[in-house]
């Protein structure tokens, strides 16, 4: 974190900071992808810290911090506490920040073995055994799910913050977005293994509209019943390994997906080994 100036409050133009933890940058990139709205957005907020956009960075405090990525190192575990201290509101964005992300797979394995398999001198690394969501470390004011997050939802969170209202976000299933757009159910009409019934809405049911079943990248819905969905899919002939891995794609660490995948794969699945290709 480089601090080149002290942040001064600007009335009517709140400061926004964007922070990266263990992640691919895709979620914060979604903010830059808001091409049509970017100028209007820049007129309403001051980006005090957003390295992907500008090398200029001002110190806190910040009105709104958007946090991408999961906590995987002792240094990051300390850094997130400082960000919380400097921020009026903290909203975490994406599967990494809200559930530990793809790297959350390490939670089901011996992380040291991964490091030894990848690095010649793993002793130089200082990492934690787990990849954990930001909310495991600090209190967060809001969470945006998805891998990556939905642009519209990202704008909605910032716009709602500016208006002092609650963002309009749904905790219902992806199925409801399929039904709203008239997409024929891939699970019922074709027997495809789809996580839509247990996955949080927000993407607009993008994948099913393109003939791909839901991968669950938005994580569990408000009230998922993973076991019952798994029973049906296993009954249809889908393998337990296939379904367990599906649940461990983007949100392996999210409670209901973690429990559901462990029930399918067992506590020590073959995918937990670093040798598994």
């Amino acid at each position: 974190m480089t601090t080149t100036a002290t942040s001064r409050p600007e009335p009517g133009r709140p400061s926004v900071a964007v922070w990266k933890f263990a992640s691919c940058d895709g979620c914060q990139l979604s903010l830059l992808d808001c091409e049509d709205e970017l100028l209007a957005l820049a007129g309403r907020v001051r980006f005090a810290h957003f390295p992907e956009m500008s090398r200029t960075s001002t110190g806190g405090p910040y009105d709104l911090s958007l946090v991408e990525g999961s906590v995987t190192t002792p240094a990051d575990a300390a850094r997130i506490l400082e960000i919380r201290r400097l921020s009026r509101r903290v909203v975490t964005i994406g599967a990494c920040a809200t559930a530990g992300g793809i790297q959350g797979l390490r939670n089901f394995a011996a992380a040291g073995e991964y490091a030894a398999a990848v690095y010649a001198r793993p002793e130089y690394l200082s990492t934690l055994d787990t990849s954990t969501p930001i909310s495991d470390h600090i209190e967060v004011d809001g969470e945006l799910h998805g891998c990556p997050v939905d642009r519209g939802q990202l704008l909605e969170v910032i716009t709602a913050h500016l208006a002092g209202r609650r963002p309009v976000l749904s905790g219902s299933s992806v199925c409801q977005e399929c039904k709203a757009r008239g997409t024929v159910c891939l699970l019922v009409a074709r027997g495809t293994a789809c996580l839509g019934p247990v996955t949080r809405a927000g993407c607009g049911a993008l994948c099913p509209s393109l003939d791909r079943a839901c991968f669950g990248c938005f994580g569990p819905s408000d009230a998922p019943n993973v076991a019952a969905l798994a029973d049906r899919l296993v009954g249809d002939g889908h393998g337990r390994g296939e379904l367990g891995r599906l649940l461990r794609t983007f949100n392996a660490g999210a409670g209901p997906f973690a429990a559901g995948s462990t029930a399918l794969l067992g506590p020590d699945p073959e995918m937990g080994s670093p040798d598994h290709g």
Partner: peptide
């Protein structure tokens, strides 16, 4: 057994 996904209602 119910997924409470809401498909039936929609």
């Amino acid at each position: 057994r119910c997924l409470s996904c809401g498909n039936c209602t929609l």
